[in-house]
Computed example of a mutant assay.
Amino acid sequence: MNDLDKIDRALLAALQTDGRMSNAKLAETVGLSETPCARRLRRLENDGYIERYRAELSRRALGLGVYAFVYVRFAVHDKNQANRFEREIQAIPRILSCHNVSGTADYVLQVVAHDLEDYGTFMRDQLRGLPGVTAVESALSLREVKSPGALPLA
Protein backbone atom coordinates (compact mmCIF):
# COMPACT_ATOMS: atom_id res chain seq x y z
CA MET A 1 0.00 0.00 0.00
CA ASN A 2 2.95 2.33 0.61
CA ASP A 3 3.82 2.04 -3.10
CA LEU A 4 0.59 3.81 -4.03
CA ASP A 5 0.62 7.54 -4.61
CA LYS A 6 -2.34 9.90 -4.72
CA ILE A 7 -3.06 9.19 -8.40
CA ASP A 8 -2.89 5.41 -7.94
CA ARG A 9 -5.39 5.68 -5.10
CA ALA A 10 -7.64 7.89 -7.23
CA LEU A 11 -7.50 5.32 -10.06
CA LEU A 12 -8.43 2.49 -7.70
CA ALA A 13 -11.23 4.51 -6.10
CA ALA A 14 -12.69 5.44 -9.50
CA LEU A 15 -12.59 1.81 -10.70
CA GLN A 16 -14.25 0.57 -7.50
CA THR A 17 -17.11 2.96 -8.27
CA ASP A 18 -17.32 2.09 -11.98
CA GLY A 19 -15.27 -0.84 -13.25
CA ARG A 20 -16.49 -0.26 -16.82
CA MET A 21 -15.12 3.26 -17.00
CA SER A 22 -13.22 3.80 -20.25
CA ASN A 23 -9.53 4.65 -20.12
CA ALA A 24 -10.32 8.11 -21.50
CA LYS A 25 -12.88 8.82 -18.75
CA LEU A 26 -10.60 7.32 -16.10
CA ALA A 27 -7.69 9.49 -17.26
CA GLU A 28 -9.91 12.58 -17.16
CA THR A 29 -11.19 11.66 -13.68
CA VAL A 30 -7.69 11.41 -12.18
CA GLY A 31 -6.11 14.25 -14.19
CA LEU A 32 -3.81 12.26 -16.48
CA SER A 33 -3.53 11.83 -20.21
CA GLU A 34 -4.64 8.44 -21.58
CA THR A 35 -1.22 6.82 -22.13
CA PRO A 36 0.16 7.37 -18.61
CA CYS A 37 -3.23 6.35 -17.19
CA ALA A 38 -3.18 3.08 -19.15
CA ARG A 39 0.40 2.45 -18.05
CA ARG A 40 -0.47 2.99 -14.38
CA LEU A 41 -3.54 0.81 -14.69
CA ARG A 42 -1.49 -2.03 -16.19
CA ARG A 43 1.05 -1.69 -13.35
CA LEU A 44 -1.72 -1.80 -10.73
CA GLU A 45 -3.10 -4.96 -12.37
CA ASN A 46 0.35 -6.57 -12.65
CA ASP A 47 1.23 -5.70 -9.04
CA GLY A 48 -1.96 -7.40 -7.85
CA TYR A 49 -3.88 -4.37 -6.60
CA ILE A 50 -6.63 -5.14 -9.12
CA GLU A 51 -7.59 -8.80 -9.04
CA ARG A 52 -10.43 -8.83 -11.60
CA TYR A 53 -13.29 -6.89 -13.14
CA ARG A 54 -16.86 -8.14 -12.83
CA ALA A 55 -20.50 -7.12 -12.86
CA GLU A 56 -22.52 -6.93 -9.65
CA LEU A 57 -25.81 -8.73 -10.22
CA SER A 58 -29.13 -8.14 -8.46
CA ARG A 59 -30.19 -10.97 -6.15
CA ARG A 60 -33.77 -9.71 -6.33
CA ALA A 61 -33.89 -9.70 -10.14
CA LEU A 62 -32.50 -13.25 -10.13
CA GLY A 63 -35.13 -14.39 -7.64
CA LEU A 64 -32.68 -15.08 -4.80
CA GLY A 65 -34.75 -13.72 -1.92
CA VAL A 66 -33.00 -15.55 0.93
CA TYR A 67 -29.56 -14.49 2.09
CA ALA A 68 -28.14 -16.44 5.02
CA PHE A 69 -25.05 -16.48 7.16
CA VAL A 70 -24.35 -20.09 8.01
CA TYR A 71 -22.11 -21.12 10.92
CA VAL A 72 -20.60 -24.56 10.37
CA ARG A 73 -18.93 -26.60 13.10
CA PHE A 74 -16.80 -29.72 12.96
CA ALA A 75 -16.52 -32.25 15.82
CA VAL A 76 -13.11 -33.46 14.67
CA HIS A 77 -10.56 -31.00 13.40
CA ASP A 78 -8.75 -33.07 10.82
CA LYS A 79 -6.73 -31.28 8.13
CA ASN A 80 -7.71 -33.74 5.37
CA GLN A 81 -11.38 -33.42 6.24
CA ALA A 82 -11.15 -29.62 6.27
CA ASN A 83 -9.40 -29.69 2.88
CA ARG A 84 -12.16 -31.90 1.44
CA PHE A 85 -14.83 -29.58 2.86
CA GLU A 86 -13.12 -26.52 1.36
CA ARG A 87 -12.74 -28.22 -2.04
CA GLU A 88 -16.37 -29.30 -2.15
CA ILE A 89 -17.83 -25.89 -1.28
CA GLN A 90 -15.90 -24.35 -4.19
CA ALA A 91 -18.26 -26.22 -6.53
CA ILE A 92 -21.51 -24.96 -4.92
CA PRO A 93 -22.55 -21.69 -6.64
CA ARG A 94 -25.11 -20.68 -3.99
CA ILE A 95 -22.29 -20.44 -1.42
CA LEU A 96 -21.07 -16.92 -2.16
CA SER A 97 -18.24 -16.90 0.35
CA CYS A 98 -16.66 -19.12 2.96
CA HIS A 99 -14.42 -17.99 5.80
CA ASN A 100 -12.46 -20.19 8.21
CA VAL A 101 -13.00 -18.31 11.47
CA SER A 102 -12.12 -18.32 15.14
CA GLY A 103 -14.78 -18.65 17.81
CA THR A 104 -17.57 -21.17 18.23
CA ALA A 105 -17.89 -21.91 14.50
CA ASP A 106 -15.19 -23.31 12.25
CA TYR A 107 -16.54 -21.68 9.07
CA VAL A 108 -18.97 -18.91 8.19
CA LEU A 109 -20.67 -19.14 4.82
CA GLN A 110 -22.77 -16.64 2.92
CA VAL A 111 -25.51 -18.51 1.09
CA VAL A 112 -28.35 -17.48 -1.24
CA ALA A 113 -31.57 -19.33 -2.06
CA HIS A 114 -34.78 -18.61 -3.93
CA ASP A 115 -37.00 -18.98 -0.85
CA LEU A 116 -37.08 -20.71 2.54
CA GLU A 117 -38.14 -24.04 1.07
CA ASP A 118 -35.21 -23.94 -1.38
CA TYR A 119 -32.88 -23.00 1.49
CA GLY A 120 -34.17 -25.88 3.63
CA THR A 121 -33.63 -28.36 0.79
CA PHE A 122 -30.09 -27.07 0.28
CA MET A 123 -29.35 -27.45 3.99
CA ARG A 124 -30.76 -30.98 4.14
CA ASP A 125 -29.45 -32.35 0.86
CA GLN A 126 -26.11 -30.60 0.45
CA LEU A 127 -24.66 -28.65 3.34
CA ARG A 128 -25.22 -31.11 6.18
CA GLY A 129 -23.69 -33.88 4.07
CA LEU A 130 -20.38 -32.12 3.44
CA PRO A 131 -17.23 -33.70 4.93
CA GLY A 132 -16.73 -32.96 8.62
CA VAL A 133 -19.95 -31.00 9.19
CA THR A 134 -21.52 -31.90 12.53
CA ALA A 135 -23.49 -28.75 13.36
CA VAL A 136 -25.00 -25.94 11.32
CA GLU A 137 -26.62 -22.72 12.51
CA SER A 138 -28.22 -20.12 10.25
CA ALA A 139 -28.84 -16.42 10.61
CA LEU A 140 -31.16 -15.13 7.90
CA SER A 141 -30.65 -11.59 6.69
CA LEU A 142 -33.80 -9.57 7.21
CA ARG A 143 -32.46 -6.45 5.48
CA GLU A 144 -29.11 -5.46 4.07
CA VAL A 145 -28.02 -2.21 5.71
CA LYS A 146 -24.66 -1.91 3.97
CA SER A 147 -23.46 -4.07 1.10
CA PRO A 148 -19.84 -4.95 0.40
CA GLY A 149 -18.48 -1.81 -1.10
CA ALA A 150 -15.24 -0.14 -1.96
CA LEU A 151 -12.15 -1.01 0.06
CA PRO A 152 -10.65 1.86 2.07
CA LEU A 153 -7.63 3.37 0.31
CA ALA A 154 -6.46 5.89 2.91
Rank of each mutant, 00 (worst) to 15 (best):
V72T: 09
A68H: 03
I92L: 13
D106I: 10
G103K: 07
D106S: 09
D115R: 03
D78W: 01
G103Q: 08
I89W: 01
L109I: 05
E86I: 02
H114Q: 15
G103V: 09
H77C: 00
R84M: 13
Y71M: 12
Y67F: 13
N100S: 13
A113C: 08
V76Y: 05
V112H: 09
N83M: 12
V108E: 09
D115L: 02
K79L: 15
H99S: 09
V111T: 04
R94Y: 03
C98N: 14
H77Q: 10
V108Y: 00
L96T: 02
V111C: 04
V101M: 03
I89T: 11
F69H: 15
Q110F: 14
Y67T: 15
D115I: 05
Q110C: 07
D78G: 02
E86P: 02
V66K: 15
R73N: 12
D106T: 10
E86N: 00
L96Q: 12
E86V: 04
T104A: 14
R87P: 00
V112Q: 10
K79R: 13
L109F: 14
F85T: 03
F69G: 06
Q81Y: 02
R73P: 00
A91H: 12
V112L: 12
Q81V: 14
K79P: 03
S97K: 10
F74L: 14
V76R: 15
V70S: 08
G103C: 09
V70L: 06
A105C: 07
P93A: 08
